[in-house]
Design a protein around this nucleic acid. Structure first.
Lengths: 188, 188
DNA sequence: GTCTATACGCGGATAGAC
DNA sequence: GTCTATCCGCGTATAGAC
């Protein structure tokens, strides 16, 4: 063994992080194993000592990404429903998020590819997403409202990203932000 | 000329329709030119007498798909805002739509691939989408509400499609349906 | 307009040296 | 664990016969 103990585990984490960024930016299917490894400074041959297949990477990557997202939501410092959701709206519905998919949420970036994947992968994804949903429920008090807002957030980023004009992206983001705020004023 | 006049135009329309179904079901990038042509009963060599490149097909396909969607919305027989949106909610937020992406809206199926495409293609997409938005504005009376609802509709289908459990798909659809209805009750 | 044949690069995955 | 070399199928696109 020429590598110190714990190296493989750390390297795997690093691979997941870098591959996640690349997959969110370019798309997972469209990116080759060689692309993922080059971004990590390795060659494709080394890939299979960390993952059994490209699909195995996808599964691990989804789990890691959703863990990161849930941590972000949990670190929201506000406690009242209004302040909590305001914080999330400003963070999630930002131009920065639209323009930097590599550091953003996995849902608007990869959900359509997840939707076309095998059931095993969807189960992993669903389990993590339900944890995220529960977090929203805790703060908003309603399962229905939690799903509705999550869908609108994802749809807004997806929609804004496919627009050509920057001004229009902003309009879409602000429309959803205002819509969610007044929705909650009537519900909370 | 062994082919009757008007043949090429008809064949192109047929190619766009069948390719659109396949792209929405499998994804555009992941489907090969040969796949599109086989689904139309031709071989890949014939592709280039109809389209100059695969990307050219994508652009034409997006335009055709959005034309179809806008026609659907225009054929909504209801005139009052409540009845109009109810009709759309029941049609769009259905399990059938979740389970049959090949005959559904192009947005939840291909928006993330459009977001990663060149500016030329995004311009075509944006122009058609703005027409769709205007239709929503006509019936709902608010540009903001129109964007908010469109985002939520797209997000709901995308989200439902990536779930493993059918029951959960329904919960998400119904949550968004109810959320939009009460949002409009307070706004209209 | 469609076919077959073909060029050529990239896809995922494996084998063996270090 | 990572490297280079390699297998082999699929990707887009073109050429030429019918």
């Amino acid at each position: 063994m020429r590598y110190r103990i714990g190296y493989k585990e750390e390297k795997r984490k690093s691979l997941l992080q870098i591959s996640g960024q690349l997959a969110k930016k370019q798309g997972f299917n469209v990116t080759g194993v060689d692309g993922f490894m080059q971004a990590s400074g390795l060659t494709s041959g080394a890939f299979y000592s960390h993952f059994s297949s490209k699909n195995d990477l996808f599964k691990a990557l989804i789990e890691a990404e959703l863990h990161n997202s849930i941590s972000l939501w949990q670190n929201n410092p506000h406690t009242t429903p209004e302040a909590w959701i305001d914080f999330e709206l400003n963070r999630y519905l930002s131009i920065y998020h639209v323009d930097h998919s590599e550091s953003g949420c996995i849902l608007p970036a990869l959900a359509s590819e997840i939707a076309r994947s095998d059931d095993d992968l969807k189960q992993v994804y669903q389990a993590e997403l339900l944890r995220g949903h529960q977090l929203f429920v805790q703060h908003l008090g309603s399962e229905e409202t939690a799903w509705a807002i999550m869908c609108q957030l994802v749809g807004a980023i997806l929609m804004a990203r496919s627009m050509a004009d920057d001004a229009l992206k902003l309009i879409i983001l602000e429309s959803c932000k205002q819509s969610i705020k007044s929705m909650l004023q009537n519900a909370l």
